[in-house]
């Protein structure tokens, strides 16, 4: 039992289960999945489908956070990638041509890779703190996205392009497969090779990692590039979903939701150990929460209040200090430094 509670997935899963249970009690047909026109429909499918972009962004964020970094620019990259793809398609002669859609996707992906590379170079090359380095692109990126769309909302009607966000494969939304593929790639790269170990090592102790002979520069650049790629693909899904690009609002607050998902998933903001599965569950929790609030019939804007409490509760649960404080409730004396040091004694 104790080992079960200690497992890193225990708390995220417990929270998610509680949320789902609440939904089940509130609306008994929450779990029902129906087949219509060969497609599966149901709240669970919706959560997976609508949660896809967030899961993607959060996956990228996980490896960045594991290196003791943070990528604030993902929301802007989401907007830029969607804007670029839609602009390209809107300029094309035949919007329905698959070639055009592929070119647009390729272009957007290349661009988001380049933006990730920019972040990576600032962090590893110039040695700027990640939160600051990515703040630059977060601020400027919104402007760039609006520059691409000329401040307008670009609407497109491209069948091949809309497949990414709205199409379905084997009765399931296509976006789920995109997420699964990216998750598979990430898991394979980090757990089947030594990349994951290197990321954790660099995140935990960069100086020692250098002396161990790990090329931390390469590790850092690759995590930011990966994060850029994830955000870019998420941008494609989002813009394809609504068949339009909005430089101003696409991907707004995604960085925060993604960080939240990562933290809920059990990865510490201090770098080191990271949990991809935890992150996916974290993102699903956030999406379920949004859906739940929608189901209850509360205005969706109020999700923010609930999110605020979720952030706090999750962080408090994960905070060792908090748990110790509860445990040491009865010890009356206050020696602030003691608890901290006790761990090392």
């Amino acid at each position: 039992m104790k080992r079960l509670v200690r497992h890193h997935l225990f708390w995220p899963l417990a929270v998610w289960a509680a949320l789902l249970l609440f939904n089940l009690l509130y609306s008994p047909d929450f779990f029902s999945i129906v087949v219509r026109n060969g497609h599966l429909y149901g709240s669970l499918i919706d959560i997976l489908n609508f949660g896809a972009p967030l899961i993607l962004v959060a996956l990228g964020m996980t490896v960045v956070i594991a290196t003791e970094g943070i990528d604030l620019s993902v929301g802007s990259v989401v907007a830029i990638s969607g804007a670029m793809a839609c602009l390209w398609i809107s300029k094309g002669a035949d919007q329905n041509s698959p070639g055009l859609a592929f070119a647009a996707i390729g272009l957007a992906v290349l661009l988001s890779l380049a933006l990730g590379l920019w972040n990576g170079l600032l962090v590893s090359g110039a040695g700027i703190q990640p939160i600051i380095a990515t703040l630059i692109l977060m601020v400027a990126g919104r402007g760039i996205a609006q520059l691409i769309t000329s401040g307008q909302i670009i609407t497109i009607s491209s069948k091949p392009y809309s497949y990414i966000g709205t199409g379905s494969l084997a009765a399931l939304p296509f976006s789920i497969f995109v997420v699964a593929a990216m998750f598979g790639i990430a898991a394979l790269l980090t757990r089947r090779t030594a990349l994951g170990l290197f990321i954790e090592s660099v995140g935990n102790n960069p100086r020692a990692s250098r002396l161990i002979g790990i090329r931390s520069r390469v590790v850092l650049i690759s995590v930011y590039v990966f994060s850029g790629l994830c955000a870019g693909i998420a941008g494609l899904i989002l813009s394809s979903n609504v068949a339009s690009a909005d430089g101003n609002n696409a991907g707004l607050w995604y960085e925060l939701d993604a960080i939240l998902a990562v933290v809920i998933g059990g990865t510490s903001l201090n770098g080191g150990r990271f949990y991809l599965t935890g992150t996916v569950i974290g993102a699903l929790i956030i999406q379920t929460l949004t859906t739940t609030i929608y189901v209850i019939g509360v205005p969706p804007e109020i999700t923010l209040v609930v999110k605020a409490f979720v952030v706090l509760v999750v962080c408090l649960i994960q905070s060792e200090t908090f748990r110790n404080k509860i445990a040491e409730r009865w010890r009356t004396r206050h020696y602030p430094a003691e608890r901290e040091v006790t761990r090392h004694a």
Partner: peptide, 25 residues
């Protein structure tokens, strides 16, 4: 500061340098 990787296990700490010379792949 320049030796141990605190969050990793003894096993991981031991194999890190060898792994680094082999490359990540």
């Amino acid at each position: 500061t320049e030796g141990i990787i605190e969050d990793l296990t003894v096993r991981e700490n031991i194999i890190l340098a060898l792994q680094a010379t082999r490359g990540w792949f």
